[in-house]
Amino acid sequence: MTARQKRIVFIILGLCAVAGSSVMITKAMQSNLAYLYAPETVLAGEVPENKLIRVGGLVKKGSLKRSDTSLDLSFVLTDNRGNEVTVTYDRILPDLFKEEQSAVVRGKLNSDKVMIAEEVLAKHDAEYMPEELKDVLKKEHAPAPDKTTEVTY
């Protein structure tokens, strides 16, 4: 083998190793615990109490309750499969925060499995469309699969 062929072999081996490590990092990240917990995991008691964690889910319809005298509020995070976690918060919610939209909450879990939030973040969807157009498309593509049955965080 010439020196150049040797270099090519080494580089190909190196790139294979790089690809392998890349696959492993991706797999590790997909274990889901890298970033946030789902309500299901919280209810199953697999989440440490009094530690700073993130929980993600849909804000349950009609669950947002505000105090009349302070900024205190509470809402319920759900996965639409019956797993629900109550969240309390005492700061201002982001503009995009709405019921039936995804949110990511950072805070601590108390012993009653209530999340004391330090930060509430709203997720927005990846549909860059005005509301009217969305409705038109829904009709054109009817019967559309019910979006709320499958929750994405």
Partner: peptide
């Protein structure tokens, strides 16, 4: 060359087949 490993990871951090498997704040593309 070694750093190239990060590029597919960036891509799949929001584009994995099962959206529930890779939770993130960033919306999927």
């Amino acid at each position: 060359m070694v750093g190239l490993a990060i590029v597919p990871v960036i891509y799949y951090s929001i584009n994995c087949p099962d959206p529930n498997a890779c939770a993130s704040l960033h919306q999927e593309s």
